[in-house]
Simulated assay, not measured.
Amino acid sequence: MKNFKNKILILFAHPALQNSRVNRQLITYVTSLDGVTFHDLYEAYPDFHINVKHEQNLLLENDIIVFHHPLFWFSVPAIVREWMDLVLQHMWAYGKTGKALEGKKLFNVITTGGRESLFQHDGSHGNTIMEFLAPIRQSAHVCGMNYFPPFVVHGTRNITQQEITSYGEDYQKMIIALRDGKVNLEAARSHQRLNSDLESIITT
């Protein structure tokens, strides 16, 4: 296999994927990419009995970690919470000797049923996506990881097939660019979401 600048682990979580028109299509753009490990947590652990050592080894083997999930009640699906509670162990992921994840990069890929205007200070939800993701961002910080803004697909209840295709193509483009080390990470930090202007953060 070709040596890539970054190996990427996508931790996917959707408890009712059969009912998801958008996520079922989005993942098809990244599941078969070289240098990318796609890991469906609900498929791997339908009983929530998470293999901690296996998950820790996956983290060690990869440079960029992606949590891909719908936003459920302004948070992550239950298995992601369970995964974090069990896998990110004290003195392994954090603490005085917990340096296993130091320097790795982390971000979320998120879908929301609500439109983008709802996730503003003057919107009905009163907070931005980045603010709702504060627990993930802080967890990354405690583990010594570099957290980046999310890739977000808003308004999935009314999204068109053409829009889904466009988001899927952008998702694939972003993952490939990250894998190949062709993303200006400092520029990416200035955005509220990674896919607000991909052309400005992907280098040639």
Rank of each mutant, 00 (worst) to 15 (best):
E82P: 10
S190Y: 01
N57D: 11
I201Y: 06
C143S: 10
D180A: 01
N146Y: 14
Q18H: 07
R179W: 11
I202T: 12
G35M: 07
A100L: 13
F67C: 12
D85I: 06
M91A: 07
W92Q: 02
F4M: 12
Q162W: 04
G113R: 07
I64V: 15
Q172G: 10
L88C: 02
H125Q: 07
P70Q: 08
I129Y: 05
S196K: 15
N3W: 05
A13H: 00
Q162K: 12
L88A: 08
D47C: 02
R24L: 06
T203M: 07
I27D: 03
Y29E: 06
N62A: 09
K7W: 09
H191W: 06
M174L: 15
L26D: 01
I64N: 12
A13D: 03
T28H: 03
Y29V: 10
Y171H: 05
M145P: 07
G35A: 02
R157H: 15
E169M: 14
T204I: 02
T28G: 01
Y45V: 00
K53S: 13
K96T: 13
N3F: 04
Q18A: 10
Y167I: 12
N158T: 15
F12D: 00
S190T: 15
L194G: 13
I8R: 05
W83Y: 15
T111E: 00
D63G: 14
K53Q: 10
E61H: 13
N6S: 14
N23F: 09
P77E: 06
L58C: 08
Y147E: 02
N19S: 05
H69M: 02
T204E: 15
M130W: 00
P150M: 03
V76I: 12
Q18E: 02
G95R: 12
Y167P: 04
A13Q: 01
F72M: 06
N19E: 03
V76C: 04
N23K: 00
V142K: 06
G168K: 07
V183T: 14
A16C: 06
Q120E: 10
P70G: 09
N108T: 13
